[in-house]
């Protein structure tokens, strides 16, 4: 019987860890005697930022993550994790399972000797939490805001704000001390578990900076290859099941958390015109970022091609369709920057 050690980037205090735990429980039930995954909460074995290195080097066999944390190693990890104003959760599921996304995850993580199983998807993140309400883009001018991600930072700076990068665990204190004027972290339920309602009084929706997010598990390639095809398939089944579970679970929990936030903070919403303007700028940032990194271009191209491909049927099925067809970035511009097939 094989035994794996697995950890995650999330401490037990953040609700994001529930997805990791759900996968591990399912996987252990399915694999029975063949494989036992021993799961440790984030921080117990290695700090969040080191999970990637620990799995890559084979110190541990598996690590739950949000791919965006590794964008410093390859900018392509960013669109594998989230998009500014582009994909929603269903887009990620479609793309991963039927439009070639899963292979792209394996290709990018494969450069670092890892196999990747996406097993979590959350829809729109909360948006910015501040003490001065943000009603229009004007209110963002000169604000120092914690935002994670390269594209997100560029977009914020074009909108007149300043990106401050810090680990999730530091946001609370930075907000409390006024080191930053605002911050975003995750979906409403996770934000509630992090206690942001204690240190902010306003919340601007929607979260255009992260229209949806993907989570999953990095597996050391040698450990993966050592498994029988049957065991590999069982892990894939556990991941697929958790993917669907995470979507409904998070939407339910986010709904509950929204109601709680609504009682204690002022919730505002950008108008449609503003969101359209942000969409145009987000498209430019995506093309600009993609053209600085071939892998990133390749990922975005695949994603935008999916959107184009799916658009006809999705729009035809309106109003019963699964979300919007975004007026996304120029597919030809991305194709020019992507490596030739």
């Amino acid at each position: 019987q094989d035994s794996w050690t697995m950890t995650t980037t999330w401490p037990s205090s953040l609700e994001l860890i529930e997805t990791d735990k759900h996968f591990v429980d399912l996987a252990n039930k399915l694999t029975g005697d063949e494989l036992q995954i021993e799961f440790y909460e984030g921080g117990a074995l290695v700090p969040a930022g080191e999970v990637f290195g620990a799995v890559e080097s084979g110190t541990i066999q598996a690590g739950g993550d949000w791919p965006g944390y590794w964008a410093g190693r390859d900018a392509a990890f960013s669109p594998l994790a989230t998009t500014p104003s582009l994909f929603n959760a269903v887009d990620y599921v479609n793309w991963i399972q039927q439009w070639g996304g899963a292979e792209i995850y394996d290709e990018i993580y494969g450069q670092f000797g890892m196999k990747y199983l996406p097993y979590g998807v959350t829809n729109n993140e909360s948006g910015f939490r501040t003490n001065e309400p943000i009603r229009t883009l004007e209110d963002l001018q000169g604000k120092r805001i914690r935002v994670s991600g390269l594209e997100q930072g560029k977009l914020l700076e074009q909108l007149g704000g300043n990106q401050v990068s810090m680990a999730g665990g530091e946001i609370y204190q930075a907000l409390e001390r006024g080191v930053i004027d605002g911050g975003e972290f995750s979906t409403p339920n996770v934000d509630w578990s992090a206690g942001f309602q204690q240190v902010t009084s306003a919340w601007a929706t929607p979260g255009w900076h992260q229209s949806a997010s993907v989570f999953g598990v990095m597996i050391n390639q040698q450990s993966w290859d050592a498994l029988s095809p049957e065991t590999q398939e069982k892990l894939q089944i556990a991941a697929d099941a958790t993917l669907l579970w995470s979507l409904a679970f998070t939407e339910k929990r986010a709904t509950e958390a929204y109601a709680k936030f609504d009682e204690v903070v002022e919730i505002t919403r950008y108008d449609d015109e503003t969101l359209e303007k942000i969409q145009t700028m987000a498209n430019d940032v995506i093309v600009e970022t993609a053209c600085e990194n071939e892998n990133s271009a390749k990922v975005y191209l695949s994603m935008v091609e999916y959107l184009g491909d799916y658009a006809q049927w999705r729009d035809a099925s309106a109003p019963f369709n699964l979300g919007r067809t975004p007026n996304g970035p120029d597919v030809e511009a991305l194709r020019e920057c992507a490596p030739a097939e």
């Binding site: 290695v46 700090p47 930022g49 080191e50 110190t59």
Partner: peptide, 17 residues
């Protein structure tokens, strides 16, 4: 001995960073 990798991961992530 394989787990010794986490020693440096932890020193860098928990103390230096």
């Amino acid at each position: 001995p394989m787990v010794l990798g986490i020693v440096v991961n932890r020193i860098f992530g928990d103390v230096l960073s």
